[in-house]
Design a protein around this nucleic acid. Structure first.
Length: 217
DNA sequence: AAATATTGCAACCGCTGGATG
DNA sequence: CCATCCAGCGGTTGCAATATT
């Protein structure tokens, strides 16, 4: 039987969130099977990680994040998942996409006014890389620096809040037919509800873990 | 207003590495 | 050890939205 591909629908999202709430975000092949979504485990995982995960931060990359991405990329190269781990709420896919866009802009800038000293990807160039930020990117990001005001929920079609609200409904849980594990289910659902996300910007955007700290020094 | 180009992002694909039997 | 399975990663593609001509 051919697996479903392409964009996810609202019902599919709901179903996936429900199933992940029940069984956790492991064993994706199993989740794919029991969900009845007719999607591959891979596809389910991707959708969860990149879109449905409750801890995801939505909205534009902030200037702080942008700087961090530049710096980390200059250190680690295209290790997107590693970079993403330092940016709570951002996914590797998101950062990768951002970087691509960013580099494209930069390349176009260069085309317009070729720059002779264009060495980039070395540790010594962090500040250079930063100062090389295309002016339009800087302007763009500073214009959105009052980011707190951006509505994270204004995502196309249906919002994540809608989904999570529905999932959080106790009625829904009691309606499930997994009688004996209800409490567990309830707990897991409760803990999965998006907590007040890292207080925007009051939380240091990233913390260096020991390993990285040592590697850096 | 229509056609075309560009951008942004979600999703897929192929590969790799770790876990397990 | 070796084979198999699965999760995760990075690269790439496709397409809708937006900007430009």
């Amino acid at each position: 039987m051919a697996m479903r591909k392409g964009p996810w629908g609202e019902q599919e999202d709901l179903q996936l969130v429900r199933i992940v709430g029940l069984f956790g975000d492991r064993r994706w092949d199993f989740i794919a099977k029991v969900s009845g979504l007719n999607r591959t485990g891979k596809s389910c995982r991707l959708r969860w990680v990149n879109y449905l995960h409750p801890d995801l931060k939505r909205g534009r990359i902030t200037p702080q994040e942008e700087r961090l991405i530049l710096e980390l990329h200059s250190r680690w190269g295209n290790r997107w998942s590693r970079i993403a781990r330092k940016l709570p709420g951002r996914t590797d896919n998101e950062i990768k996409n951002y970087w691509r866009t960013h580099m494209r802009k930069k390349a176009q800038e260069r085309k317009r006014k070729p720059c002779p000293s264009s060495s980039s990807s070395s540790l010594t160039c962090i500040s250079a890389a930063q100062s090389e930020l295309p002016t339009e990117v800087v302007a763009e990001s500073s214009s959105t620096s009052a980011l707190g005001e951006i509505s994270d929920d204004a995502v196309e079609g249906y919002s994540m809040d809608q989904i999570w609200n529905e999932i959080a409904m106790p009625d829904m849980i009691s309606g499930l037919s997994f009688g004996e594990c209800k409490d567990e289910v309830y707990d897991s659902l409760c803990s999965a509800i998006p907590s007040p996300m890292w207080e925007y910007c009051s939380y240091p955007l990233w913390k260096m873990d020991d390993e990285d700290f040592q590697a850096y020094h």
